[in-house]
Nucleic acid binder design. Structure first.
Lengths: 192, 192
DNA sequence: GTCTATAATTCGATAGAC
DNA sequence: GTCTATCGAATTATAGAC
């Protein structure tokens, strides 16, 4: 329960905070770290910029809070062995199109050191374990995971960030059909 | 011939201009558009910031000049049909590691609208024609090209920009061995 | 061709009234 | 809890002396 549902002392601060986070995610995703200004975020919420500072202290704190994410990868053991690629790619397409967090993380990670560090944590804490659970040789999991991630991030870059027209034109199903065999091979092929 | 080799009126401006472009490429590649300041570029060259403005007018003009690039893709007809993936991936790894232009373009393309537009031009003017020359169905070339580009950009992102440790640790040969079959399939497979 | 000086913005962050 | 006012720093860009 937040102070909102508990009956805040004067007004609900929980909803304001959530609104700030929503607007922040949108601006970071659209503009990257430097161009996403505190002022623009506050304007989008309809409050004063100093409120953002009051709630989050610094711009970097705001980004950290706005980019908290759990990938919620499917459990590898719930997928057929030959459907790992399809399952993983489909999950990520849904994830990218569901909200702005991943796009924001990608945009910020490219130019901001803290953002890049966050991407590396996400990779090692969530992608590598997934690969470790399905790889023929678990010691090879980091390399398998980075290959998978490179293809998934590359398509996200082309489709959602750089907006190459043919990538935008592809349907969700076409993306899955083309990428799944690649991801499947990276995960399970005996050798390169 | 530039005014330098032609005997400039007072001093050589050609070398200064080239030095500015070199420093600009380095800063754009390392910091992205917003954080790469005219001042930092000038400091790196050892000249006054106003000189940069004199030579290039605006920061955006400087970026445009610094990011001019020709991919110099291999001629598809010089490669064996089953060696297209290997040839293309090897070429790009060399290209990424040869200079900072592609890294800079990627960094700027992610956060700057003009940079993204430049990436789209590069894609449609150089990647699509390559695909058109080798695809079974030339009408399908844009989609083939975008798939290839997604994998190549994704690996560049993981290896040179986000610096995922397993991607950095891979040798040039390992990258080619793993990515070549993917690119080959995107270019020549009959269907997904 | 090079530099000094500065204009004009814009940003993150702070202080304090209500 | 919210807003006004503002500081201090950094930026691009310009005007003009030498």
């Amino acid at each position: 329960m937040t102070e909102a549902s508990a009956g805040g002392p004067r007004r609900t601060s929980g909803v304001t905070k959530a609104a700030i986070l929503d607007a922040a995610r949108e601006r970071f995703a659209a503009d990257g770290y430097e161009r996403a200004t505190i002022r623009a975020i506050a304007r989008e919420v309809g409050i004063d910029p100093s409120m953002v500072m009051r709630y989050f202290g610094t711009k970097e704190n705001l980004f950290t809070a706005a980019s908290e994410i759990r990938l919620n990868l499917p459990n590898p053991h719930d997928l057929p062995v030959d459907g790992l690629g399809t399952g993983l790619v489909a999950h990520f397409v849904d994830r990218w199109e569901g909200d702005d967090v991943l796009t924001g993380l990608l945009r910020v990670g490219v130019t901001n050191p803290a953002g890049a560090e966050r991407m590396r944590s996400l990779f090692s804490e969530q992608m590598v374990p997934f690969a470790r659970a399905v790889c023929p040789d678990p010691d090879d999991a980091p390399r398998r995971a980075v290959l998978v991630t490179s293809q998934i991030l590359g398509m996200a870059l082309a489709r959602y960030v750089l907006c190459f027209p043919p990538a935008v034109a592809m349907s969700r199903e076409e993306v899955v059909e083309w990428l799944a065999p690649t991801v499947q091979r990276y995960l399970t092929a005996e050798r390169a």
